[in-house]
């Protein structure tokens, strides 16, 4: 976190943020499940100006074979940004940042997915960021758990993602790109709403113990809001046209 000098007013005197939100408000989130023809499960998520496509394949054969586990299926995740997704064109080869995010998302989903029933197989989760605007890892995680449910992968719970943070000395929910660049702290959270467990947590920036507590609190609140949208996406796909049997 730079706390970089900028002309943008991150928080005005009425407590309104640069994109018109209040401090405890998330951006607009929309999710659609089942958007790809070939994938076993898929989801398209818009989280503010973030646009992310997620495809799930599997359980399926593991290549190379030595990666497979005879006791359980394995989860593999790839977070990837399209070259045109960011301000300056991104080199198409995976960066260290993308490799790290792939890993933390995988570890955020692992507590939820149950792959014991599928020994020697892999479930592949591919997250493709088409447009990035701050908070892509939470958005990708949110979309990924909808795509996993769409694919019928057994899960203990969904995982919802939302960041909290600090900008202009205020604790805020769902940090956008400007706030990430010019703000003071970014604390992304992944959360299983029914099991009440945090499975992704990072922090970039400085928080007092009190601010840390507040960030976790409103972050969980944000995840609960995101969860309602995940639920709706699955209901719309699977239960929409026909009513109870």
């Amino acid at each position: 976190m730079g706390g970089r000098d900028t002309d943008i007013v991150l928080l005005d005197e009425n407590g309104i943020r640069c994109d018109g939100r209040k401090v405890n408000e998330t951006r607009k989130v929309t999710i659609k499940a089942g958007v790809l023809k070939n994938a076993n499960g898929s989801a398209y998520i818009e989280f503010g100006d973030n646009k992310i496509l997620v495809g799930v394949y599997g359980p399926r054969d593991v290549h190379p074979k030595h990666m497979s586990d005879t006791d359980t299926g394995i989860l593999r995740c790839r977070y990837h940004m399209a070259p045109f997704s960011v301000g300056e064109r991104k080199n198409p080869a995976p960066s260290r940042r993308e490799v790290e995010i792939s890993k933390v998302i995988k570890e955020a989903l692992e507590p939820a997915v149950m792959l014991k029933e599928f020994p020697r197989t892999a479930v592949d989760v591919f997250m493709e960021v088409l447009q990035a605007d701050g908070g892509t890892r939470c958005a990708a995680l949110t979309g990924a758990s909808v795509a996993l449910a769409d694919a019928g992968i057994p899960m203990r719970d969904l995982v919802a993602g939302c960041a909290a943070g600090k900008a202009a000395d205020a604790v805020i929910l769902d940090v956008n790109n400007e706030e990430d660049q010019a703000g003071q702290a970014d604390l992304p959270i992944g959360y299983m709403p029914n099991l009440k467990k945090i499975t992704l947590l990072q922090l970039d920036g400085v928080l007092t113990p009190e601010e840390y507590k507040q960030c976790i609190e409103i972050g969980i609140d944000g995840c609960n809001q995101v969860y309602e949208i995940q639920k709706k996406a699955l209901q719309d796909k699977f239960f929409a046209s026909g009513e109870k049997q």
Partner: peptide, 12 residues
């Protein structure tokens, strides 16, 4: 109990 639509994590 009536059959209900459920998603992962939902309490039945």
């Amino acid at each position: 109990e009536k059959k209900r639509h459920v998603i992962p994590g939902e309490v039945i």
